[in-house]
Each structure stands twice: as C-alpha cells, then as structure tokens.
Design a protein around this nucleic acid. Structure first.
Lengths: 209, 209
DNA sequence: GTATGTGAACTATTTCACAGCT
DNA sequence: AGCTGTGAAATAGTTCACATAC
C-alpha cells in the first residue's frame, strides 16, 4: 500500500478496537469481521478496515480477522507491548482517583513516583509509592527513567510542574489542569479537561432545543 | 451568512476561547484580535474568526473583538448562561475528585444529587449533598429535574446506571467508565476514558521513535 | 456466498487571501 | 494601517463500491 497519512483520531479508535478484542478473546471468539467489530462500537465496517489497513494486512477475505492476532498487532501498534514508567504529580483528590484507578497498571503504565508539594502529604506511604517532594521531580524522574508525566495539580501550579517534568526528560504529559501548558516542541501533550467536557454537553443540549 | 454546518470540535474550541476571555476580562483588557486570541491557545487567526463567524458577527474590522461582549456571546452560545442540575453517580475515588473539583460549579453545573450503591456510603453527608441509594436515581432525578448525569462507577455497573438515568429524563451523560454505553437516540453522551488518553500518548511516543 | 483491502468519490474541516470596514 | 468576515482553495478524513481472496 502507498504510504498514507494516518488520521489523528485513528490511534484513539485502535484503543477501542483493542478493548473489544480483549473482551472477545476472553469469550474465546476466534475471528471477527470488520462489520461485527464496528457494530460493537460506534463505527462502520469501512472505517474499521481502513484503520487497520493503515498498519498492514491483518484480515482474511471471507473469514475476517483473527481475534488473537489482531489483539497482538494492535497492542504493538499502540506501544502497549512494553512498560511505560509514569510519574503522578499531585496527590489531591484527582491524583488519588488516578492512582486508585487500576486501568493504567493493567496496560503497562506503571506509576513509579508520586509527587506533591504539601508537607503534610510528603513522606506518606501510598500503595507501593511514597509521596515525594515536588522539588525532587528532576532527580527522581531521571533516576527512575520516567517517560510519562501525569499532571493533576491546580492550574496555577501546572506550568511549573510541566517545566520540571520536561526538563528532566519526560517525553509526554497527560495534563488534567484546566490550563494551556507550553511544552518544548516534540513533546507530546494531551489535555483532559473535565470542565470542557461538561461545557460541551451543555453546548449540545442548548443547540438541540 | 449562508447556513453552514458547524464542525463538531467547534464547541470545544469555544470553551477554550471563553477561558482566555475570562482571563483577559480580569486583566481589564478591552479588545482582542483573532490573532492575539489564537496565539494564546494552539490555533491560528483564521480558525478563530471562522469559529466565531458561525454564530454571528462579533468583531469590528480594524479593532478586533470586545472582550466583554465576546465573553457574554460565547457564554450564551455554550449554554452557560443558566444552571445545569447534575447528578453524580459513584462516590468512589473518582466521584470524590469530581465532586471536589470546583470547576463545575463555577460554570453553572450544580451537583444536586450524589448516588452510590455501597451501604457503607449511603446516608453520609457529602458537602451539601447526602449520598443516596443508587436505587433511588429515578425518583430523585425526576424530583430535582436533573438534566445531566455524571457516571463515575466501575465498568460493569455503568450501563445499568445509564439506563436509570436516561429512563428518568436525563438529557446528557458524561461517562467516565471505560465501556461503550448504549443510550437512546437523541441523548447526548460524552466519554472520558483515562486509559485511552494514556494509550494515545504511548501510541504517539512509539510512532515517533 | 462472505469479507478483505483499496482506489475513487465524497464529505468535513481548515487555511488562504482579499474585499471592505474602522 | 489594522483587522474582520467570508468565498474559494486546500487539506484531512470517511464512506462507497468493487476486484480479489477464502
């Protein structure tokens, strides 16, 4: 196939395919067609086939896709065939929720350090981690070869945290602070903004009246 | 202007514009150009002008946009000029974080009820709310005229919760459970999936190697 | 018959570029 | 001069439809 630009959203969809495939694997389903896969999520057969075709030829005409093989293939495409050492900054409510949320660990995202700047929290044991002083981000990130930073601090502290993370070699940041972070070029940044999600609902509700 | 279809992502961008405008209003800035606004977020002047033009003519050639007027206009477009009664289902870690996160209330999203199915939690006071039995969702949602449901329960409980919410007149759902919810047509659904966000980072990191 | 992979058609969205207003 | 609003062009992404493989 000719080299084609892969749409930005494709990665996101691969994640959802993978989730379905894992479910199917558990149920011992052996093969699945693009149509059947599409109907399990909000999609259509052509979209599924196209998305997969960007990365190779995984299916067999007349048969469909081998659940097991496709699962392995997508896991690899998404880079989930390895561990990703993460640091969580912010041990407040949101930080706790993220830490407790088991979903990360399962996919290879291992929280190797937790930081906060509240003296009352520093030193407390937290699962396997001990909460450490945010001042020590640089040292520890380098030491533990952390690659992804999760920013769960208030807006006004977020940029400084991001600077420390990027300055210590983190390659990507998942930002929960409701602020636009400035990061060096080449750094991957994703924002999850809870207010904006709700506002978006309000927008659609208002429109449809 | 000719009636044009408004891109899906436009609402999301309006939210970010609004955030900047609020900041500017605080700083007593009176007007701003599309270029200056664009440079404050990751955008460009043409995009900003186009987004605003979908909804009317808010700017003045040679001058720019009145910060105050544009703020009011976008607030209205996004449906944030009113209160949105919300129900939070799930009083676990994530639920707590969402409840504690003040950002909602500020924008008119008022959490009018909190539900859980854990007997140890039911009855406990939680800020102004009392945690109520998830069995009572229907009654209370109707009673309090709740319009938006926030689902912060484990995946296996999410569909049932969603069914109860939609069955009691909720018009939109913000879903944090890592599962594809099925909702009646016309219902607005947004998903925030923490694992998928992280997976997406991993995907981009893997690609760029 | 069934289902893939993929050019080609189509649709959506962004960006250019400029007439016209302040 | 500076900046908006908007046709038109360019780019991105989705869906069709069919040759081909099982």
């Amino acid at each position: 196939m000719v080299v084609t630009k892969i749409p930005e959203v494709c990665g996101m969809r691969l994640s959802t395919y993978l989730r379905v495939l894992k479910e199917l694997a558990k149920e011992k389903v052996e093969t699945i067609s693009s149509g059947a896969l599409a109907s399990k999520i909000n999609s259509n057969p052509a979209q599924v086939r196209r998305d997969l075709a960007y990365f190779g030829q995984f299916g067999r005409p007349g048969i469909g896709y081998s659940v097991k093989k496709l699962k392995v293939a997508i896991t690899k495409i998404l880079g989930l065939d390895r561990q990703w050492p993460c640091a969580l900054v912010g041990a407040g409510n949101l930080g706790s929720a993220l830490f407790a949320y088991g979903g990360f660990y399962k996919e290879g995202f291992e929280i190797k350090a937790v930081f906060d700047n509240d003296p009352a929290k520093i030193g407390k044991g937290w699962g396997c981690c001990e909460i450490e002083d945010a001042k020590r981000i640089s040292t520890i990130v380098k030491q533990r070869k952390i690659e992804i930073g999760i920013v769960a601090v208030p807006a006004q502290a977020a940029q400084e945290v991001a600077d420390r993370l990027t300055g210590s070699g983190v390659k990507a940041i998942l930002n929960f602070a409701p602020i636009k972070l400035t990061v060096p070029k080449g750094m991957k940044l994703r924002n999850v903004d809870l207010s904006i999600e709700l506002e978006n609902l309000a927008y659609f509700l208002s429109k449809s009246v």
